[in-house]
């Protein structure tokens, strides 16, 4: 294995483009190192992106949107009070990942690019409408985060491409987001179902909503029907029932030791209601 420490994303792309065999990028290493040590994946080339200047920065832009560096850790996100006020759901989803020690290293981009359908921050990023800068041999493009996951352990990034920044939209007045997951323990476990909701209100009425589910399909999924079920409502009982139904209908889960298909499908509906309620209360302020 060759270990590289490029000083720019351009250099990282050049190394990745020319590399033979298996290439991995190293952000926090909390997936890469586990896979390396358990002999699941030994990269031929490991490209550490943490020495790129600014890679750990968390910046609020003049228009209220946020640019998060790809090496910014969960701990740094949680310590950023203003980010937490704008995007409490995104920050709480990231904060659920692992222990204090794991938080000291883990990143949003690593969570996304590791490609787990149960990745906790990913439904929250989907719901928030996050976009990412993809830098590759042909330059840079900005793509919605939903276009990155391709299946368990797989992304749609091409050879030589990496994510160079994470963009979170501005939080407008009357908006709120939330994330919850179900796990059999209270800490340190993998989501059986995860759900992220982001919504905007006009008075008491929901004008926009985005709902995403994790761990119920080969990738994290957007559930437009669940969003449609609550837009135009005040999140009354009828709307919540429709939301649950739509969330359950979007499930295509696996049966495993953590949960059966029937259980995951049921929990998706329950979580969607709870998360929507929290997001709604946050939006009301």
């Amino acid at each position: 294995m060759q270990y590289h420490t490029p000083a720019t994303f351009g250099d990282a792309v050049a190394i990745a483009s020319g590399a033979e065999g298996v290439t991995r990028f190293l952000a926090g290493g909390t997936d890469v190192l586990v896979q390396l040590r358990s002999d699941l994946v030994e990269p031929d080339n490991l490209i550490d992106i943490k020495r790129v200047p600014g890679a750990s920065d968390i910046t609020k832009n003049p228009d209220g949107s946020w640019t998060l560096g790809v090496a910014a850790t969960g701990a740094e996100m949680s310590e950023h009070a203003e980010l937490g006020r704008d995007w409490p759901g995104l920050v709480e989803a990231m904060d659920l990942i692992g222990s204090t020690q794991v938080q000291g290293r883990a990143t949003l981009t690593g969570n996304l690019c590791n490609g787990s359908p149960a990745a906790d921050s990913v439904p929250a990023m989907f719901a928030a409408g996050v976009t990412v800068s993809v830098t590759g041999p042909d330059g840079m493009r900005q793509v919605p985060v939903e276009q990155i996951p391709a299946g368990p352990g797989k992304t749609n990034l091409a050879k030589g491409e990496l994510i160079s920044a994470v963009h979170v939209p501005a939080r407008r007045a009357g908006g709120g987001d939330a994330y919850l997951r179900f796990i059999p323990r209270t800490e340190m476990d993998i989501a059986v179902v995860g759900c992220g909701v982001n919504l905007a209100l006009n008075g008491d009425t929901i004008t926009e909503a985005r709902v995403a589910l994790g761990a119920v399909a080969p990738t994290v999924v957007m559930v437009p029907d669940a969003a449609a079920a609550i837009v135009g409502t005040t999140l009354d009982d009828a709307a919540l029932a429709k939301l649950s139904e739509a969330a359950a209908a979007a499930c295509n889960p696996i049966d495993d030791k953590r949960g059966t298909i029937a259980f995951r499908t049921h929990v998706a509906g329950v979580l969607a209601r709870r998360v929507a309620r929290i997001a709604y209360d946050r939006a009301k302020g």
Binding site: L26, G29, R37, D48, A75, Q101, V102, G104
Partner: peptide
């Protein structure tokens, strides 16, 4: 910053 040294490379 608190980390697990088993999940960090010496080179880092």
């Amino acid at each position: 910053r608190l980390v697990c040294s088993c999940l960090m490379l010496g080179a880092e």
